[in-house]
C-alpha cells in the first residue's frame, strides 16, 4: 500500500476547475517531483494534500485513511508537513520561534529538534533571534524547511523551494535532502527547475493544465518527452 496517494483528484476555486482527476502515488521512503509550467496546478495539488483545499474524502489517502476532507491542522498532526510556496514565514516571530511553532500540532520526539535543524542549517543558529523576515531569501527558505521538519513529518511537501534563489543557494538547500530522507520522511518536491527535479527524485510527474501528462523515473525521460508534457505536444 502506498504511503500517500491521490485518486481522480479534482479541485476547484469557485467556478474555476484547477485539477481534473490527478493520480499520484508516493511510496514510503520515496522522493517524487512534480514539474510543470506556471498555472499547471502544482500548488493546487499541494494545497489539496495538506488540507488547505477541501476535496472528496476518498480522493486523497494517507496511510490507508481517507484524508481529502480533513482540515489542515488535522492532516499536519498525522504527519504531513508543508513548505509552502513563497515560504510564508511568520513576520512577528523570530527565526527560532518560527521553528518552534512548526511543532505546535505535532510535538513528537524524533530526529528533528532545534539542535538538529541548526546542525543542518548552521546560519540559522547565528540568526536565531532575528525576525524571520529580516533574513535573506535563501535563509528564509531554510527557516521554512526547518519549521516543517520540526514536527518530524512522515511526508514533507516542498513547493518551489528554489524559486528566486541563486544556484549556489539552491545547491546548499538541496544538500539537506539526504538527511531529511534518512530521518524517515518521504518527499514531494514541486520544482520549476527541471534539472533539479530530475536529480532529486526517484520518480517525476509532469503536470499541464490540471492534469498529469507524463510520469516515470528520471532515466526514462527524454528532453522531447518532457518538453511535450510541459508545453503540450503542439508547442
Amino acid at each position: 500500500m502506498a504511503l500517500l496517494e491521490t485518486r481522480n483528484l479534482t479541485a476547484r476555486y469557485g467556478d474555476f476547475q484547477a485539477l481534473f482527476g490527478v493520480d499520484i502515488v508516493l511510496e514510503a521512503g520515496e522522493t517524487i517531483s512534480i514539474i510543470g509550467a506556471n498555472g499547471a496546478g502544482k500548488t493546487t495539488l499541494m494545497r489539496s494534500i495538506c488540507g488547505l483545499l477541501a476535496n472528496q474524502p476518498d480522493s486523497i489517502r494517507f496511510d490507508g485513511r481517507a484524508i481529502g476532507r480533513l482540515a489542515a491542522d488535522e492532516i499536519m498532526a498525522m504527519g504531513i508537513a508543508m513548505v509552502p510556496e513563497g515560504r510564508k514565514l511568520f513576520a512577528s516571530l523570530s527565526v527560532e520561534e518560527n521553528l518552534l511553532v512548526g511543532r505546535y500540532g505535532r510535538a513528537i520526539a524524533g530526529h528533528w529538534s532545534l539542535e538538529t535543524v541548526y546542525g543542518l542549517f548552521p546560519i540559522l543558529k547565528e540568526r536565531r533571534h532575528s525576525p524571520a523576515t529580516a533574513l535573506s531569501g535563501g535563509q528564509q527558505q531554510m527557516v521554512a524547511i526547518g519549521r516543517a521538519l520540526m514536527s518530524n513529518p512522515r511526508v514533507l511537501l516542498c513547493d518551489e523551494i528554489s524559486l528566486g534563489l541563486a544556484p549556489v543557494v539552491i545547491r546548499d538547500i538541496y544538500r539537506a535532502v539526504p538527511e531529511i530522507k534518512a530521518a524517515g520522511a518521504s518527499l514531494i518536491v514541486v520544482e520549476q527547475d527541471i534539472g533539479q527535479a530530475l536529480r532529486v527524485a526517484d520518480r517525476v510527474y509532469c503536470m499541464m493544465e490540471g492534469r498529469v501528462t507524463l510520469s516515470g523515473t528520471p532515466a526514462e525521460f527524454s528532453r522531447e518527452a518532457i518538453h511535450d508534457a510541459y508545453f503540450g505536444a503542439a508547442a
Binding site: L52, M76, A91, L100, R103, Y104, G105
Partner: peptide, 23 residues
C-alpha cells in the same frame, strides 16, 4: 509560551498557521 507563538502566528496568517497544526 507555545500558546503565545500560536497567537502571533495565527494573527500573522491563519491559513499558514493551520499548516503548523494550529486550529
Amino acid at each position: 509560551t507555545a500558546l503565545g507563538r500560536a497567537f502571533r502566528a495565527t494573527s500573522d496568517d491563519p491559513s499558514t498557521a493551520s499548516l503548523m497544526g494550529i486550529r
